[in-house]
Measured scan of single mutants.
Amino acid sequence: KLKCQHCNHLFATKPELLFYKGKMFLFCGKNCSDEYKKKN
């Protein structure tokens, strides 16, 4: 199981990947990825 970088939920589906500031982040979906980008 993977943990979403934004909402901290565990998920087993294909993660949404975001490469940001030289790091890779995993998200449970596009919505969390977009929210994370807005906040950072």
Rank of each mutant, 00 (worst) to 15 (best):
Lys1Phe: 01
Lys1Trp: 01
Lys1Arg: 02
Lys1Gln: 03
Leu2Ala: 15
Leu2Cys: 07
Leu2Trp: 06
Leu2Tyr: 03
Leu2Asp: 15
Leu2Met: 14
Leu2Arg: 13
Leu2Gly: 15
Leu2His: 05
Leu2Gln: 15
Leu2Lys: 14
Lys3Gln: 11
Lys3Val: 05
Lys3Met: 03
Lys3Glu: 13
Lys3Arg: 08
Lys3Ile: 06
Lys3Asn: 12
Lys3Thr: 07
Cys4Ala: 01
Cys4Trp: 00
Cys4Val: 01
Cys4Arg: 00
Gln5Trp: 03
Gln5Ala: 12
Gln5Asp: 02
Gln5Gly: 10
Gln5Pro: 03
Gln5Val: 08
His6Glu: 13
His6Val: 08
His6Asp: 07
His6Cys: 10
His6Pro: 00
His6Phe: 05
His6Lys: 01
Cys7Phe: 00
Cys7Asp: 06
Cys7Trp: 00
Cys7Gln: 00
Cys7Pro: 00
Cys7His: 01
Asn8Gln: 14
Asn8Arg: 12
Asn8Trp: 04
Asn8Met: 12
Asn8His: 06
Asn8Lys: 13
Asn8Leu: 12
Asn8Asp: 08
Asn8Cys: 12
Asn8Ser: 14
Asn8Glu: 13
Asn8Ile: 04
His9Asn: 12
His9Pro: 01
His9Arg: 14
His9Leu: 09
His9Phe: 04
His9Cys: 08
Leu10Phe: 15
Leu10Ser: 09
Leu10Asp: 13
Leu10Pro: 14
Leu10Ile: 05
Leu10Gly: 14
Leu10Ala: 14
Phe11Asp: 02
Phe11Lys: 05
Phe11Gln: 03
Phe11Glu: 02
Phe11His: 02
Phe11Val: 14
Phe11Pro: 10
Phe11Leu: 05
Ala12Thr: 09
Ala12Met: 06
Ala12Phe: 04
Thr13Arg: 07
Thr13Pro: 05
Thr13Lys: 09
Thr13Tyr: 11
Thr13Leu: 04
Thr13Gly: 12
Thr13Trp: 04
Lys14Trp: 02
Lys14Glu: 10
Lys14Val: 05
Pro15Tyr: 01
Pro15Trp: 01
Pro15Cys: 02
Pro15His: 03
Pro15Lys: 10
Pro15Val: 02
Pro15Arg: 06
Glu16His: 02
Glu16Gln: 11
Glu16Arg: 07
Glu16Lys: 13
Glu16Val: 06
Glu16Pro: 02
Glu16Met: 05
Leu17Cys: 12
Leu17Thr: 15
Leu17Tyr: 08
Leu18Glu: 06
Leu18Gln: 10
Leu18Met: 07
Leu18Arg: 08
Leu18Ser: 13
Phe19Gln: 15
Phe19Lys: 15
Phe19Ala: 14
Phe19Leu: 12
Phe19Tyr: 10
Phe19Arg: 15
Phe19Trp: 12
Phe19Asp: 15
Phe19Glu: 15
Phe19Val: 12
Tyr20Cys: 12
Tyr20Phe: 14
Tyr20Ser: 13
Tyr20Lys: 06
Tyr20Gly: 08
Tyr20Met: 09
Lys21Val: 04
Lys21Leu: 12
Lys21Gly: 13
Lys21Arg: 11
Lys21Asp: 13
Lys21Met: 11
Lys21Pro: 06
Lys21Ile: 03
Gly22Ala: 09
Gly22Gln: 12
Gly22Val: 02
Gly22Ile: 02
Gly22Trp: 03
Lys23His: 10
Lys23Gly: 09
Lys23Thr: 10
Lys23Ala: 10
Lys23Ser: 09
Lys23Met: 10
Met24Cys: 12
Met24Thr: 15
Met24Gly: 09
Met24Tyr: 03
Met24Lys: 15
Phe25Ile: 06
Phe25Thr: 09
Phe25Ala: 14
Phe25Met: 14
Phe25Pro: 04
Phe25Gly: 11
Leu26Pro: 11
Leu26Gln: 15
Leu26Asp: 09
Leu26Ser: 14
Leu26Val: 14
Leu26Trp: 09
Phe27His: 02
Phe27Tyr: 10
Phe27Ile: 02
Phe27Gln: 01
Phe27Arg: 00
Phe27Trp: 02
Phe27Pro: 01
Cys28Lys: 01
Cys28Arg: 00
Cys28Ser: 00
Cys28Glu: 01
Cys28Ala: 00
Cys28Gln: 00
Cys28Gly: 00
Cys28Leu: 00
Gly29Ala: 11
Gly29Leu: 02
Lys30Ala: 09
Lys30Phe: 07
Lys30Tyr: 11
Lys30Gln: 07
Asn31Leu: 09
Asn31Lys: 14
Asn31Glu: 09
Cys32Gly: 00
Cys32Thr: 00
Cys32Pro: 00
Cys32Asp: 01
Ser33Ala: 11
Ser33Gly: 05
Ser33Trp: 06
Ser33Thr: 06
Asp34Arg: 08
Asp34Met: 07
Asp34Gly: 08
Asp34Lys: 15
Asp34Pro: 01
Asp34Tyr: 08
Glu35Trp: 06
Tyr36Lys: 01
Tyr36Trp: 10
Tyr36Cys: 03
Tyr36Ala: 08
Tyr36Leu: 04
Tyr36Thr: 04
Lys37Asp: 09
Lys37Thr: 07
Lys37Gly: 11
Lys37Ala: 13
Lys38Leu: 07
Lys38Ser: 11
Lys38Asp: 06
Lys39His: 08
Lys39Cys: 04
Lys39Thr: 09
Lys39Glu: 12
Asn40Thr: 12
Asn40Arg: 10
Asn40Glu: 08
Asn40Cys: 05
